[in-house]
Structures are given as C-alpha cells and as structure tokens.
Deep mutational scan, measured.
Amino acid sequence: SKDAAQYVYDEAQKGVTQVTVNGVTFKFDNWQKLLKYAQKLLN
C-alpha cells in the first residue's frame, strides 16, 4: 500500500537499514538501498 511505502520511505530517511511492515521485516546492507526500495514502492 502507499501508506506502507511512505512509512518505509520515512524510515529510510532516518538512516535505518531495516524496517518492519505488516509483520514483515526487510533488511538492507545500507539505508540507501532501503531508500531505493521505498522509492520503487512509491512509484
């Protein structure tokens, strides 16, 4: 959902490398990768 994507995006902006959405945890090597993933979700 857009809300989940926005949440992931906001978390990535904080510099975190993992985020949990609806009980599913996504882990990334660095926050830039998390940010890229979030941007994909938002598009």
Rank of each mutant, 00 (worst) to 15 (best):
K36F: 05
D3P: 09
Q18M: 08
T25H: 09
L42Y: 03
D10W: 14
A38T: 03
A4T: 05
K2N: 12
A5I: 06
K27C: 15
S1R: 02
K40F: 03
A12G: 06
K40V: 03
F28R: 01
E11G: 03
A12M: 11
L35N: 00
Y37N: 02
V21Y: 02
V16P: 12
D29K: 07
L41M: 02
K14D: 11
Q39I: 05
D29R: 10
Q13V: 11
V19F: 07
F28L: 12
D3S: 01
V8P: 14
N22W: 15
V16L: 08
N43L: 10
L41N: 01
N22A: 14
L35E: 01
K40N: 04
T17P: 07
T17M: 07
D10A: 08
L35P: 00
V8C: 15
Y7N: 10
Y9D: 12
S1A: 05
Q32M: 05
A38S: 01
D3L: 06
N30V: 10
L34G: 00
K2T: 12
G15T: 13
A5Q: 09
A38G: 01
K27G: 13
A38H: 01
N30S: 12
Q32L: 09
T17F: 13
Q6I: 07
V19A: 07
E11W: 14
K2A: 09
A5T: 04
Q6M: 03
Q13M: 12
Q39T: 06
N30D: 12
V8T: 10
E11A: 03
A38M: 12
K14M: 09
Y7H: 15
F26T: 07
Q18W: 11
S1F: 13
S1L: 13
A12I: 13
K14N: 11
K27S: 15
W31K: 00
D29N: 08
A38W: 08
N30R: 10
Y7D: 13
V24I: 05
G23L: 15
N43C: 00
G23D: 06
L34V: 01
D29P: 12
T17V: 13
L42C: 14
A5L: 13
Q13Y: 11
K36S: 06
K40T: 07
K2V: 14
E11S: 03
L35V: 02
D3I: 06
F28V: 08
L35M: 02
A38C: 14
Y9A: 09
V19C: 15
L34I: 02
D10G: 08
K14F: 11
N30Q: 06
V8N: 10
S1H: 14
G15Y: 15
V16H: 03
V21L: 05
V24F: 09
F26M: 09
K33H: 09
D29G: 12
Y37E: 02
T25K: 10
E11F: 14
K2I: 13
Q6P: 04
N22D: 06
Y7C: 15
A4P: 14
D10R: 00
K40H: 07
V21A: 08
Q32Y: 11
K27M: 15
T20K: 04
V24S: 07
Q32V: 05
K33W: 06
Q13G: 10
A4C: 14
W31Y: 06
L34T: 00
V21P: 06
V24K: 03
Y37S: 01
D10Q: 05
K33V: 04
L34A: 01
K14G: 14
Y9E: 10
K14C: 15
L35A: 00
Q6K: 06
G23I: 15
V8E: 13
D29C: 15
K14Q: 07
D3H: 08
Q13A: 11
V8G: 10
Q39W: 13
K2Q: 14
L42T: 01
Y9M: 07
A12R: 03
Y7Q: 08
F28E: 02
V24M: 06
V21S: 09
D3G: 02
Q39F: 11
N30H: 09
E11Q: 08
Q18I: 12
A4Q: 10
Q6T: 03
D3T: 02
F28H: 02
V19T: 04
G15D: 02
Q39D: 02
V16S: 05
D29V: 13
K14R: 06
K36A: 12
F28Q: 03
V19W: 11
Y9G: 11
Y37H: 04
N22S: 11
K40E: 09
T20D: 04
G23E: 05
K27H: 11
G15K: 08
L42H: 01
K40W: 10
T25R: 05
A38R: 00
E11Y: 09
L34P: 00
T20L: 14
G15F: 11
K40I: 08
D29W: 13
A38F: 13
V19E: 01
V21D: 08
D10L: 13
V16I: 06
T25Y: 10
A5V: 05
A4D: 13
K14L: 09
K36W: 11
G23P: 01
L34S: 00
Q32H: 10
A5K: 03
V16N: 07
V24A: 04
N30M: 11
Q18E: 08
V8R: 04
G23T: 12
T20N: 04
W31H: 01
L41V: 04
A12Q: 08
Y37D: 02
G15R: 04
N43K: 13
Q6V: 08
A5F: 13
V24P: 04
F26Q: 05
K36Q: 06
N22I: 15
L42E: 01
V19Q: 04
K27W: 14
T17E: 07
E11N: 03
Y9L: 13
F28T: 02
D29M: 10
D3V: 01
Q6N: 02
V8S: 11
K36P: 01
N43A: 04
D10F: 13
K27Q: 12
Y37Q: 02
K27P: 09
K40P: 01
N43R: 10
G15P: 05
Q13T: 09
A5Y: 08
L41I: 04
Q32K: 09
E11M: 10
N22V: 15
N43E: 13
K33A: 12
L41T: 00
D29T: 07
N22Y: 15
